[in-house]
Amino acid sequence: MRILIADDHPLFRDGLHILLDSVPDMEVIGEVASGDEVLNQVATFAPDVILMDINMPGINGIEATRRLVQTYPQLKVLIITMFEDDDSVFAAMRAGAKGYLLKGAAQGETLRAIRVIAEGEAFFGAAIAQRLMTYFQGIKPSIANQSPLLAELTEREHEILTLMAQRLSNPEIATRLFLSPKTVRNQVSIILSKLQVADRAEAMRAAWTAGLGKDSEGTNL
């Protein structure tokens, strides 16, 4: 099994390399320290599995995963990161990652994750699996029954769309959610893309159709 390690922390790469070298059916065929490097060198290394960090210089691991999977559909990517928030997990899944593991996972769990995704199955570390269960168990029926496009939104994006449907401006949303105006602008752009609409007005209409932004009597705010 040919494995490429993509992580900008030398000590972490060294630890993974030592672990994988101790296993007869795995071979580390290269190490890179950025998303740009993994994109530029993947054809040269021709790995079966990439162990991918999220936070790296230049192109981050999630965007690198999205581009890799589009070009090499047979490639298996296992995210190994410190980030365990819902947005990062779901973004990695949408990008095409086969697995998600937190740094600090036991060696046995790391090896098992690599073998599972190499076989084409999905793998989530215990902590991530618990988060996913908690998330889906907490979804309100009204949200779960909405259109497939709205189902693509993260919890934060859904929250921002609801406030958009209430006719709040970006600065007002930023103040309400304690976010920077730039973050809200970026999130709104992502929402428009996911909903496949051209502008804010169309996004608001889609939200109203789904029942978002209405008062207790069902009237649009």
Rank of each mutant, 00 (worst) to 15 (best):
E27N: 15
T134L: 14
T219W: 11
A46S: 15
L132H: 10
L20K: 02
D14T: 13
Y100A: 06
H158A: 15
G96N: 10
G99I: 07
G218Y: 06
I143T: 05
L192N: 13
E27P: 08
R112G: 08
I62L: 01
Y135N: 13
L11H: 03
F12W: 11
V23D: 08
K103Y: 09
D53C: 03
F136T: 11
E121T: 03
L179C: 00
I139C: 08
G120C: 04
V184R: 02
G125T: 09
A210V: 13
Q41K: 14
F45S: 09
R115M: 01
L179V: 00
I59M: 10
R94V: 09
T134P: 10
M1P: 15
L102P: 01
Q107L: 07
V197N: 02
L132P: 11
F178S: 15
F90S: 01
G99W: 05
I190C: 10
R67L: 13
G15D: 06
G213W: 03
M204V: 15
A174F: 00
M82V: 13
E31R: 09
N186K: 12
V38Y: 05
A144K: 13
R176S: 11
D25C: 02
D87P: 05
I190K: 12
A126Y: 08
A207R: 11
G35I: 01
E63A: 04
Y72T: 05
R131L: 03
G104P: 00
V69Y: 02
L101A: 00
S180A: 11
E37C: 02
E27C: 14
A64W: 00
V89C: 01
R167C: 08
S147Q: 07
E109Q: 12
A151H: 14
R94K: 13
V77M: 08
A198Q: 14
R112S: 07
S216G: 03
V197R: 00
M56I: 07
A92M: 03
L149F: 13
I5C: 05
G108V: 05
P24D: 08
A207H: 12
S147H: 04
L192M: 15
A198T: 12
L192V: 12
D85I: 01
L16N: 04
L163C: 06
A33E: 14
D21S: 13
D53L: 01
R13G: 06
R67H: 14
E157V: 05
A91W: 07
L153Y: 05
P10G: 12
R112L: 14
H17Q: 14
V188R: 10
Q70P: 02
A144R: 10
A92V: 01
G218S: 06
K214G: 05
R176K: 15
V38H: 03
T209E: 14
V89L: 09
K76G: 07
L20C: 05
V23L: 05
S88I: 05
R94D: 12
K182R: 15
A126Q: 10
I3L: 10
Q146N: 09
